[in-house]
Design a protein around this nucleic acid. Structure first.
Length: 275
DNA sequence: TTAGCTGTTCAGCT
DNA sequence: GAGCTGAACAGCTA
């Protein structure tokens, strides 16, 4: 499920549901979700209170009191639900945080790809995955000149370059296809061949598209729901992803699906011509 | 039924 | 260091 807009939507929902709740105990049903020692994880988290929930790229960051943080990545299908203690434990529930008020925060992940790790709050930015992240895709953080320079030194095609999180944080397969369609750039274009003007258009499309998707509550393709278990609405605004064989909304040419760097890639062969 | 697909990241290799 | 490949896992679809 989760690219930046979905993670952000989850974050906003969780803030409303679990902020300032104190954890009474933790149950780990599938230890591989946790990076590091499970016993230490449980011991450390019990008794802590969730003071704030942040996000960096696609990473959710729970900040507790006592300078402890939990960094959580949902990968493909991770979800958080809130339940009452005693409610039936659904299939694919792997971690349960029980609060002192009788509510529970449950981590559910069909494919078990998600990971979470405890770290000192002042060390969050040193985590391997977070350390390498590029800027957040916002007008203030995402600098055009810096983006341009990095693209110039990339030997990859533009699509996998956008996915690798170091140029800009938060894009996944869906939004990468969408922003390239918006920018009329062919996904197989070598990143270093992009012209100045194209790069500027691409940057603006990334900022605008992700902001729009956050506003719509994210995209629900298969299974994504937010913390309230609602679907997102942005799938109704997609123009390329999943539109294989449908007419391009700009020119009517049928959207084509190819594989680029092992990822399904959707584009308009007419609007997004090879340079 | 079986094979192939799926929204992510990382290790291990060249 | 950078780029490519396959692996982690389960369920859905053709």
């Amino acid at each position: 499920m989760p690219e930046l807009p979905e993670v952000e939507t989850v974050r906003q929902g969780l803030r409303q549901l679990v902020l300032n709740k104190k954890i009474r105990n933790v149950r780990v049903l599938y230890p591989k979700i946790i990076n590091g020692d499970t016993d230490i994880f449980i011991e450390t988290v019990e008794g802590l209170t969730i003071k704030e929930i942040g996000r960096r790229g696609k990473y959710l960051i729970f900040n507790f009191n006592e300078g402890t943080s939990l960094v959580s990545h949902l990968r493909m299908e991770g979800k958080y639900f809130v339940r009452q203690t005693g409610d039936e434990i659904e299939k694919h529930t792997h971690i349960i945080f029980e609060f002192t008020d009788g509510k529970q925060l449950r981590y559910n992940d069909v494919r078990k790809f998600g990971r979470m790790e405890l770290v000192r709050t002042d060390k969050v930015n040193d985590l391997k995955g977070i350390k390498k992240l590029g800027p957040e895709p916002t007008e203030t953080d995402f600098d055009l000149e810096n983006f341009t320079n990095k693209l110039k030194n990339k030997n990859k095609m533009i699509k996998p370059a956008l996915l690798d999180q170091t140029l800009v944080a938060g894009l996944g397969n869906i939004y990468a296809d969408e922003v390239l369609w918006m920018s009329k750039i062919n996904p197989e274009t070598p990143a270093r061949h992009l012209e100045k003007k194209e790069i500027s258009i691409l940057r603006n499309a990334i900022i605008a598209e992700l902001a729009k998707a956050v506003k719509a509550g994210g995209t629900t393709i298969r299974s994504y729901t937010n913390a309230f278990e609602n679907s997102g609405e942005f799938q109704f605004e997609l123009n390329a992803y999943g539109k294989t064989g449908e007419p391009c909304s700009r020119c009517g040419t049928l959207i084509k699906k190819i594989v680029v760097a092992q990822r399904g890639t959707h584009y308009c062969p007419n609007c997004q011509k090879v340079e």
